[in-house]
Design a protein around this nucleic acid. Sequence first.
DNA 1: CGGTATCCCTACTGATACTG
DNA 2: CAGTATCAGTAGGGATACCG
Lengths: 121, 121
Amino acid sequence: MDTDKMRDCPVMATIEVIGGKWKPRILWRLRDGPATFGDLRRYVGVSEKVLSENLAALQRDGIVSRQPLKEGDMVYVEYGYTCYGRSLVPVLDAMGGWGLGHDARKSERSDSDLDDIRRVS
Amino acid sequence: MDTDKMRDCPVMATIEVIGGKWKPRILWRLRDGPATFGDLRRYVGVSEKVLSENLAALQRDGIVSRQPLKEGDMVYVEYGYTCYGRSLVPVLDAMGGWGLGHDARKSERSDSDLDDIRRVS
DNA sequence: CGGTATCCCTACTGATACTG
DNA sequence: CAGTATCAGTAGGGATACCG
């Protein structure tokens, strides 16, 4: 799975925690406050299995906490950032900020991409 | 590939550019200055094919530039950040900084500073 | 509601070999 | 040196069904 070469890249360490296909969306949603399993499922749009796996990984890394709650006879489970997990929010903000700019740039670029198309002599 | 749900998460947009198994290491190496294909191959420790694919993706996104160079009869190709790509460096720094702290935290036995639990109704 | 268990399947990885 | 071509193996995602 991991080559030892990957070990000494701190960016990689972060990506292993917050990266992948679904964790970014989970964490992004959680920035707005705690959410139940069902909330996350609907928001993220992924199967229960995969959501469950991702949440388990985030718990293992100490990023999110899991908290069963009772309201009358209903039982919910709320997920939210741990104190430690909140240290990730500025990083997510930096990444999100760059991502927004990147998307904007991609939109502009479409009209003037003729330079590559030139034929070889 | 992409659910449309993933589209509106700016963190995801960034991860699609710099994420994956090898791009973080490539970009990390390039922070120290340009490198040839062979440099990167040795440093990253991945097959030519995969390295090639990753560099192609980074070029498509405008992050790295490719520049063939002649020195006598030898021909090198140097890769380095584009001007735009350099806008990514602060983001990488943020991620790298957090990753370092995370690794340190994992090393320590952190029984003492658990932050969640309790407060259940 | 909040999950686990199972099975399938594709997309990506990576070794090797070859070209320019 | 700097790549491309080919091909096999596999990890991970998705659908579905089922349990507390």
